[in-house]
């Protein structure tokens, strides 16, 4: 526990130094505060995306390249319900989450399970194929036209000298709430305990009578449902198109590696860090894509601490 506290202290020191540097660089407190607020709010959504990825990685040991495509399906479900049936975007969580849960279950049971225990390349390529299939099925069905969904009651809120739209705050709050729910599911329920047992030792889990195949499918389904929920929550913030989830998939990987593979608290912390890095990186490297800073941090973490900030050394 002690090393966790000292690491958290170090992290806070680094964060303060980075924010102070950004302040000095931009010469404006409000610019910096705005970047911090936007970064944290978006980071919450990254955390939810990464939580699904890290769950799948931790339990099934699969690098899931289809995660972003599943998220895009969530966006389309929300966008179609909002424009077609006039449904409140946040109510469509009731559709996107069960839909993606079922799809994830079916995909794991019928496709991914056949590569379990196979080579890393086979699993990676399979999920890549699923991603390409989903994205281009959407392209075929709805063409590449972009859609936007507006929240009728959206309004700008003032927070500590910065401004954030209500829809962003709701996305953050929703993501954090769902992340908390997943955390409780994993730590406080029999199902969660069983899932963690499978992650720790599949043979042992199967010896004590757990249905490992079913738990694998449930975990994949839960991870995919996280992607669907994240898709719904960001729909009011992004332009919906068949490739909209790709970027979140990539950022999700960065967050997962940063937080440590399979670590749920790591995913939350990593998501917030990446959100901040993206926004503050825009101040440090003006004129460059904010993602450049994210990838630079990613490579540094890979080289310096591949087990992640919260993972244990192998």
């Amino acid at each position: 526990m002690n090393h966790l506290i000292s690491r958290a202290g170090l992290g806070i020191l680094v964060a303060v130094a980075v924010v102070a540097g950004a302040w000095a660089r931009s010469g404006s407190g409000s610019v910096t505060a705005q970047a911090v607020l936007t970064g944290l709010l978006l980071g919450g959504v990254y955390a939810l995306v990464a939580m699904g990825l890290t769950l799948i990685f931790g339990v099934l040991d699969i690098v899931n390249f289809a995660h972003g495509a599943f998220m895009t399906l969530g966006m389309y479900a929300t966008a179609l319900l909002a424009t077609g049936a006039g449904l409140n975007p946040y109510l469509s969580l009731l559709v996107s989450v069960p839909l993606l849960f079922g799809l994830g279950y079916a995909v794991q049971r019928h496709l991914v399970s056949r590569t379990m225990g196979g080579s890393l390349a086979a699993q990676l390529l399979l999920t890549l194929g699923i991603a390409m299939l989903l994205e281009n099925a959407l392209l075929l069905a709805f063409s590449g036209d972009t859609r936007t969904v507006a929240v009728s009651f959206d309004t700008p809120l003032r927070v500590l000298g910065a401004v954030a739209d209500l829809s962003r705050v709701l996305a953050f709050a929703g993501a954090m709430g769902l992340a908390g729910a997943v955390w409780l599911l994993l730590t406080r329920t029999r199902l969660g305990t069983a899932i963690r047992a499978v992650a720790a030792n599949p043979e042992g889990a199967s010896l004590v009578g757990l249905d490992v195949r079913r738990l694998h499918a449930l975990t994949f389904a839960a991870g995919t449902a996280c992607a669907g929920a994240a898709g719904t929550l960001v729909t009011p913030l992004v332009t919906v198109e068949p490739t909209a989830g790709e970027l979140f998939n990539i950022i999700g990987f960065v967050v997962v590696v940063l937080g440590g593979l399979g670590s749920v608290p790591g995913a939350v912390a990593g998501g917030l860090i990446v959100g901040l890095t993206e926004q503050l990186g825009g101040i440090y490297l003006p004129g460059q894509s904010p993602l450049l800073a994210v990838f630079a941090v990613f490579v540094l973490v890979l080289l310096w601490r591949p087990q992640g900030l919260f993972g244990r050394p192998a």
């Binding site: 496709l111 056949r114 590569t115 196979g118 080579s119 086979a122 390529l125 399979l126 890549l128 194929g129 699923i130 390409m132 299939l133 994205e135 281009n136 099925a137 959407l138 392209l139 075929l140 063409s143 590449g144 068949p242």
Partner: peptide, 22 residues
Amino acid sequence: GRSGLDVIMYAVLLIVVVLAMP
């Protein structure tokens, strides 16, 4: 006039090869 069919064919081929002909 729709696009996406070519990549769908690649994707299906990829999935079939990975699962059936590793």
